[in-house]
Every structure is written in C-alpha cells, then in structure tokens.
Amino acid sequence: MSTLLEVKDLQVAYGSILAVKNVSLTVNEGEIVTLIGSNGAGKSTTLRTISGLLKPKAGTITFAGERIDGKEGHEIVAKGLCQSPEGRRIFPRMSVRENLELGAFLRNDKAAIESDMQRVLELFPRLRERIEQKGGTMSGGEQQMLAVARAMMGAPKLLLLDEPSMGLAPVLVDIIFETIVKIREQGITILLIEQNAAAALDVADRAYVLESGSIKMSGNATDLAKDEAVTKAYLGG
C-alpha cells in the first residue's frame, strides 16, 4: 500500500493563536482514515490547511509524492484532492445541477463528467429528484448530500470529508455513513472528520485522535474503539 497523503509536524495559526500545534498523519491509498476529537480540537483547521485554504506555520504536507503545502487551493484540487467542507458551503443561488457541475470545474472530459454525474445521482437519489432546485432552498440533509456529491464530481484520488453527519437526523446519518463505504468501494481514498466517533470508527480502517491541536493517539480503528481512554472521552462510555 502506498502513501497518498503525509502530513508532518504541522502547525497552523490564526493570527497569534496556534490552533494546530503538532499534527502528523498519513493516509494510504484505498483507506478510510478518520480524525476524531472534540469541538475546537483543530480538525477543520487541519483539513483547511491540507486543501490550501490556510497556510501552515510549520511542517510539510505531501500528496501523491509531491509537496503541496503553500500551494494555492485550486492547484491542490487539480492534483486530485477534493473536500466537502464543514457547514456544507454549497452555492445557495445555484441549482443542484450547477453545484455538481462546479465540482467538475477543472475537468474537460465531458463524457466522463456525465457518467460521474449519473454515478453520484445513483448514490444520492434524493439529489436527482431536486436536480433543478436552488441549493439554498434545500433541507440541511439534502445540502450535506450535495456537498459530498459535489466533492466527488472532482474525480478525486483523496476525498476529505469534514463532519458530513453534522446536524442530521439519525436516519440520514446512517445513509451518509453507508455512502462513505460505497464511495471507498469506487476506489476513492477518504480522510473523514467526525464528532460522531462511534460511527466513524466503525467505517474507518485507521484513526487519529486530536486533542487541543495535537495528535494524542493513533492506530487501528477497531483497537481504538476498544481503548478505554477513547471510549471515555469520545464514545460516551
């Protein structure tokens, strides 16, 4: 298994406040890796930095053998790294179709885009029903599906998902996690952030635990799910 993403000694600051202090992690091709941690631990900051929306203060990020830290967001997307961000961030005044087309903004292969469109609509039949509806008028769950589907339209090698189950009804949470497994079956590697640690550990191969900006633990997802400290802190046990 080859390493797809490697983050080493990452530090990220907002002004003078260090939000990410010491993060090192790797994601191998074909894996689902999850990064869990409580609110404010620095999970989203880490993902935003990987996608080039924030510049690291220190450390390196390597994707598919190439340094990407310091590169612009659009250059990173071009290398096959797409993100469904926290809070969905769909384009509210555009239709579902236009949102999905924007997900494929950098691609020119018309036929492949169309077949990917069919593929994601298969995955999220709800979106097909609403294809001409404006994104901003859909329910929270539908917007979340759209955000994930839109990121998939970039035909990524690595998909970053930031809390895809946030604020969703339990039924929808199950659907989202089932879909994550299906996405991996299509050959896409996934780095998943979740507050719902139990569900995340359930679908993931490996996991990292982030606490106030530093990685505190890492390992096999099933092992971590049994770990006493993890259970206590994140699984409500």
Binding site: S51, G52, L53, E72, G73, H74, V77, A78, C82, Q83, P85, R89, I90, F91, P92, R93, M94, E98, E101, L102, G103, F105, L106, R150, A151, G154
Partner: peptide, 21 residues
Amino acid sequence: GKAMRATAQDQDAARLMGINV
C-alpha cells in the same frame, strides 16, 4: 462567468472547486 458567480457566492467554496479566485 461560472467561476465569477461561484466566487461571488462563497470564495472558499469556489477555491475548493478548483477555481482560481
């Protein structure tokens, strides 16, 4: 034009689509 409209609605989201903002 599409890039303009996306950027107008959400700059960071536009970046995540690969748009050179």
